[in-house]
Simulated assay, not measured.
Amino acid sequence: MAGLESTMELNNGVKMPRFGLGVWKSDNHAARDSVAAAIRNGYRAIDTAKQYGNERGTGAGIKLGLEQTGLKREDLFVTTKLFNGDQGNYERISKAFEGQLKDLGLDYVDLYLMHWPVDKTFVESYQAMERLLQEGKVRAIGVSNVDNQRMAQLIEAADIVPAVNQMEFNPTNQEQEVLKFDSSHGVTMTAWSPLGGGNSLKNPVITKLAEKYGRTAAQIILRWEWQRNIITVTKSVHEQRVIDNSHIFDFELSDEDVQTINQLDQGKRSLWYDDFKWHNPDGPYGDSVAAWDDSNDEL
């Protein structure tokens, strides 16, 4: 039966839940509370990153959620990401990863992603991640924000094909060429920003379908992504919205309506590699972890 415990098998046999909670732009306290709420309400996949500055809060939320539900660590699927500033050789990455485990309060993570393919280091960095996998510190490795050219470079140099490529994916940005290329190599796509930063919620096609099905605009989009077989990471710091976002398993979009949403694709990304500061000095994303007012507070 479809639901929050439904999984998709990755190319190394590991089963990943198809629907999870992300904590981008959440401070540590908000991450703790939303993660715990998600676990209480049936979510089994949690997605964070060192870049977000909230791995401690995410770990606190995991601990709290497990305590409140009686679940075990192995009942959850936890993803975090290699920080751009930590990329390089194995020794550098291994040390950074141990720090991430400490912040998360975990002995291992289920999926470790390269957050961005940083020039001159992303191949070496991925090879270091392969060693973490071989050492049993992670159950699967993958990448994020990787286009076809760089994915081809990684596959050529790697011993282990990435299990996942996490990309911005929503009605107006469907990454058709990346999805086609990755699928042909056994790489599973995961969607970040599945609601298009909220912009897709206002699309008249989506709002009309929401009225037709008696659902929220978010539920229409998330159900569409489910029927497209895209693993989805959605984000909210409000418990009721966390709950509402997961109520997509008791209805189905018609094939015609799926195709209608497919036609909304404009290839419009909210941010992309060429805007990234490590490649463009004027870009907005550099070698720094997001700083929050509560970063040093007790959790």
Results as ranks from 00 to 15, higher is better:
Thr234Arg: 07
Ile248Met: 08
Thr260Cys: 05
Trp272Pro: 01
Asn296His: 12
His247Ser: 10
Asp282Tyr: 02
Val289Ala: 04
Arg241Trp: 03
Trp272Lys: 14
Asp255Glu: 11
Thr260Gly: 00
Ala291Pro: 00
Asn280Glu: 04
Asn262Trp: 03
Gln263Asp: 13
Glu256Phe: 02
Thr234Leu: 07
His279Ser: 10
Glu252Asp: 06
Ser236Lys: 06
Thr260Gln: 13
Gly286Gln: 10
Glu256His: 07
Phe249Arg: 06
Ile261Glu: 00
Gln240Phe: 04
Leu264Ile: 10
Asn280Gly: 08
Ile231Leu: 14
Glu252Arg: 11
Gln266Glu: 15
Arg241Phe: 00
Arg269Lys: 15
Asp293Arg: 08
Gln259Asp: 10
Asn296Asp: 12
His238Ser: 09
Ser288Glu: 14
Glu252Leu: 04
Ile243Lys: 14
Lys277Trp: 01
Leu271Lys: 10
Asp257His: 09
Thr232Ser: 07
Pro281Thr: 12
Ala290Gln: 12
Gln259Cys: 03
Asn245Arg: 08
Val233Ala: 09
Asp293His: 05
Glu298Leu: 05
Asp250Gly: 03
Asp244Met: 01
Thr234Asp: 04
Ser246Ile: 10
Trp278Arg: 08
Lys235Phe: 03
Lys235Asn: 11
Gly267Arg: 11
Gln259Ser: 10
Glu256Pro: 03
Asp282Cys: 05
Glu298Phe: 02
Asp294Thr: 13
His279Tyr: 06
Ser246Tyr: 03
Ala290Lys: 13
Ser236Arg: 07
Val237Gln: 08
Asp282Glu: 14
Asp297Leu: 06
Thr260Glu: 11
Ala291Asp: 08
Glu252Cys: 02
Ser270Gln: 13
Thr232Glu: 03
Thr234Pro: 09
Pro281Gly: 05
Gly286Asn: 10
Ile231Ser: 06
Glu256Ser: 13
Ser288Gly: 07
Trp278Ser: 03
Trp272Cys: 12
His279Gln: 13
Trp292Pro: 01
His247Glu: 13
Leu264Ser: 07
Glu252Met: 02
Val233Phe: 02
Val289Pro: 02
Ala290Pro: 00
Asn262Pro: 02
Asp250Ala: 08
Lys268Ile: 15
